[in-house]
Amino acid sequence: MNQHDPSNKPAANESAANKPTNPAPCGGCGAGASENRRGFLFAAGTTLLTIGGALAAVPIVGAALAPAANRNPNKWLPLAKTDTFVPGDTVLMKFTNPWSTPDDGVSRENACYVRCLEPGKFQVFAVNCAHLGCPVEWFEQSRLFMCPCHGGVYYEDGSRASGPPPRGLFEYEWRLTDGNLEILGGRLPGLQEGT
């Protein structure tokens, strides 16, 4: 964090504005008094610049680092009516990133895999490989998820089958609301779940 920002305009103006209001050093005063005054001015200038810089840093650093402060990135997102899922099937479903802005374009839509174990019982997997986040593809014939990047493979229950992934597929929490399947999503799934 840059506490002392010399290019900071408001602080610089402030200290510059202070100067004319100070009386000119008097000729008759002793060298000690002039020395004191210079020391005071330097200290004051440093202090004012530091305070100004710190104040200016708040919005700058705050805006840039704001995403790190989002402690609750997940929201309940509706996927579909539960009766659209066939027991034994795993299907790709879309949901919209709850943090999306109009600027996101096609990247607004996200995807997950819904595995229906029996009516009303589900597993919802992230499409992101647990190795490095590449999109895994579901193959219903061999009942495997395969990752094209480094060859991670998962079984249909999401457990790791082979390859470099350190664990099974990430799972979303899910719940049923009025016959709708909802998942707790929003954060790009990764090894560290959101706190």
Partner: peptide
């Protein structure tokens, strides 16, 4: 034998 896809 019905392959897994048949249900869907």
């Amino acid at each position: 034998y019905a392959p897994p896809t048949s249900a869907a």
